[in-house]
Design a protein around this nucleic acid. Structure first.
Lengths: 128, 128
DNA sequence: TCGGAGCCTCACATCAGTGTGAAGGTCAAG
DNA sequence: CTTGACCTTCACACTGATGTGAGGCTCCGA
C-alpha cells in the first residue's frame, strides 16, 4: 500500500511515517516513480512504534530493539546472528525499560491508592 | 538548603532545578536576598521528578499528579478537598500510565524472551 | 489535454527538556 | 575593601518529535 493508505489505517500523519523512515524505523520499498510502498505488516509496525513513542522511548531506543519485538511466532533475526555486543546493548535497554516500568508502577499504585481514598466508588451512582 | 547543595545532593544541574520551579514542580522559599531555600524533602521531590521525567512523563503530567504521589504515610492534600473534576483528571492520567506500563511490560517480555533464546546463560561461563 | 488527488523533497516552525554563558548581586574570609 | 564562591535573571541554542506549507512530479479520469 502507499503512504496515504497506511496513514489512514493507522491514524498517523504521513509526515510522521516519513520521519520514522528517516529514523530507520520503517523501510518501505520504492516504486519506479519514487512512491513508497508498504507491506501489510507495516500497519502493525507503525502501531508498535506509536505505542513505544507514547511510552516515552526515543526513536533511537526503538530502532535498537524494534527488530526483536515481533509477536511470538513472528520472524525476527535468528538468535545465532546476534553478536555479544548487540546482546549486551539489548540487555541494557531491557534494564532501562524495567526501570521505567518500576517507576511507573510504583507511582501508579500511589496515585491509585490516593484516588481510592478520595471516593470509594467506581462509577456507580452512590449519590448521597 | 540552597540550590547548589540540592544540586550536589541530587546530581541535577541548578539550571534544571530552576526550570522545575518555573514548571511549578518545585516551590522553594526565598530568603531576603532572593536566594532559593529548599526543605530537606526537596531531595526526594527532585528524585521523584527525575524518575518520572526519565519514564517519559511530561512536566505537565507530573505537575498534575505530583501532589498526590508522596510516599505512604506522607502528607498530601486531604482527599476531601479534591474536586470531582480533579479526580476525573487523575483517573485519566492513571489510565495513561497504565497503558504505558502495559506497552512497556509487553515489549519487555518479548525482548527478554528473545534474549533468552540468544544465549541461554545468565553470566556464568558456559563456553563450548 | 487538463484537473485534481496523491505523492515527492525541502525547509522553516513549535514545544519540551536541557546546555551554556553573560551581567550582575550577596556574603564570608582574608 | 577585595576576592571568590555562590546566587540571581535573561537569553540564545540545541535535540527530538511534530506541524505546516511551498514547489513540483505522477497518474487517473473527464
Amino acid at each position: 500500500m502507499r503512504i496515504g493508505e497506511l496513514s489512514r489505517r493507522t491514524g498517523v500523519p504521513t509526515r510522521l511515517l516519513r520521519y520514522y523512515e528517516e529514523q530507520d524505523l520503517l523501510h518501505p520499498e520504492r516504486t519506479g516513480n519514487g512512491y513508497r510502498t508498504y507491506a501489510e505488516s507495516a500497519v502493525q509496525d507503525v502501531q508498535q512504534i506509536r505505542g513505544l513513542l507514547d511510552s516515552g522511548l526515543t526513536t533511537e531506543m526503538i530502532r535498537a530493539i524494534l527488530p526483536y519485538l515481533s509477536g511470538p511466532g513472528e520472524i525476527h533475526p535468528p538468535p545465532e546472528s546476534v553478536t555479544p555486543g548487540t546482546a549486551a546493548l539489548l540487555r541494557d535497554h531491557l534494564d532501562r525499560i524495567q526501570a521505567r516500568i518500576d517507576c511507573l508502577a510504583r507511582n501508579h499504585d500511589r496515585l491509585s491508592a490516593y484516588l481510592a481514598a478520595v471516593r470509594p466508588v467506581d462509577g456507580n451512582s452512590v449519590d448521597g
